[in-house]
């Protein structure tokens, strides 16, 4: 799943990268990793689904007017369309990182019963501006060599959202008025902590994060529990994460292992089904990541040069996971990340 301000490492590791200190892009996993990132002055970045059944359909859903014919053609082959895309412009300095995201898009559409077509939709168009900074407080750790850091992001986002179910028959009367986007603008903050122990050669690490604090977005629980509605969570509403990790440096390269435990609110109740784990291997200009959770499997390959980089993420995902429906639809997709450094 592409969350806001995503990049290769967040998508390929399924966001279990909050302890990946120094790995390119990991500051978007955890603001406390800010002091350890490599500086690139200006970076243009985009990531999204590039291959799979949902790509063209998803783009049209968000940008084109939605008509009955279009929806009918859409579901002639698939009953689920799931599309997402994110673009970021990152400006790095020694003291902060500013990220402007002109487009963050989600288009999830599911048809419940082809005989009596009711369509459940979650559409989101968003632009955002985020400032991230962090501070290395290692000198205050009780043990020599341990690393401790804190970080924080402040952001403002403007969203156009549609979440609801429509009947295909409704389109007969009024073609344009059915899908009306609701405007939402909000301010919010992310806070993160990171600690690495030097007690063992496996460098155990732990991270704590609270995301989207002070935002007004909420998960609609009745939609979440319903088998006929699509509702996204762990994206816009306040949630928190506990991350555990380890790393091993050898002459063959560096390996990071991470696990992430997501909670509702500020460590209130755990989402057991959405615990994720990842393994990252990096050597020189190459990086490979495997991400695993109950409903998503990802394999990412990342190639970097002085001018820019390309990331390819092969993904097997089940967007309807957790819904109480008879058939679970699994999709194979490929996500592409491109970035240019100046």
């Amino acid at each position: 799943m592409v969350k806001p301000n995503s990049n290769f490492i967040t998508v390929s590791s399924q966001n279990s990268c909050s302890t990946f200190k120094g790995i390119a892009g990991s500051v978007q996993c955890n603001p406390a990793l800010f002091p350890f990132m490599d500086l690139a002055t200006l970076q243009f970045q985009s990531i999204g689904k590039a291959e799979g059944d949902s790509v063209d359909a998803g783009r049209k859903l968000i940008f084109d007017p939605i008509s009955k014919e279009f929806l009918e053609s859409l579901f002639s082959e698939n009953s689920l369309i799931s599309f997402n895309f994110d673009s970021n412009i990152n400006f790095y300095t020694n003291y902060f990182l500013v990220t402007y995201s002109p487009y963050y898009l989600i288009g999830d559409v599911y048809i419940l019963n082809p005989a009596f077509p009711e369509i459940s939709m979650f559409l989101n168009k968003q632009s955002s501006l985020k400032m991230t900074s962090g501070y290395d407080l290692s000198e205050y750790t009780p043990f020599e060599g341990d690393i401790f850091s804190v970080g924080m992001s402040l952001f403002r986002r403007s969203r156009e959202v549609f979440a609801g179910s429509i009947l295909l028959t409704d389109f007969a009367q009024d073609d344009d008025g059915i899908v009306e986007f609701e405007d939402k603008s909000e301010l919010g903050t992310d806070i993160g902590f990171f600690y690495e122990s030097s007690s063992s050669f496996l460098s155990p690490k732990i991270s704590l994060q609270a995301k989207n604090l002070f935002t007004l977005s909420k998960v609609n629980n009745s939609r979440l529990d319903s088998s006929s509605d699509l509702e996204t969570f762990l994206i816009f509403e306040p949630y928190s994460q506990l991350g555990l990790g380890s790393s091993y440096l050898s002459s063959f390269g560096e390996i990071y292992v991470g696990m992430e435990f997501p909670f509702d609110g500020v460590f209130e109740s755990i989402y057991i089904d959405y615990i994720s784990g990842s393994i990252n291997y990096s050597l020189n200009s190459f990086m490979g990541t495997i991400g695993i959770s109950k409903y998503f499997k990802t394999l990412g390959l990342y190639f970097t040069s002085d001018l820019g980089s390309v990331g390819i993420i092969y993904s097997n995902e089940n967007e309807l996971a957790g819904k109480n429906i008879d058939h679970l639809e699994t999709q194979n997709s490929i996500y592409i990340q491109l970035d240019i450094k100046l």
Binding site: E51, F252, G253, E254, N284, F286, F303, I312
Partner: peptide
């Protein structure tokens, strides 16, 4: 430096995956 061949290994992996991927996919964007 991890080892003295890291440049060759990572460069070769890019060329290998780039070529195998290129000549096995039918998609234009890929």
């Amino acid at each position: 430096r991890y080892n003295e061949y890291e440049g060759i290994i990572s460069g070769a992996s890019a060329l290998l995956i780039g070529n195998v991927g290129y000549f096995t996919t039918d998609s234009k964007s890929m």
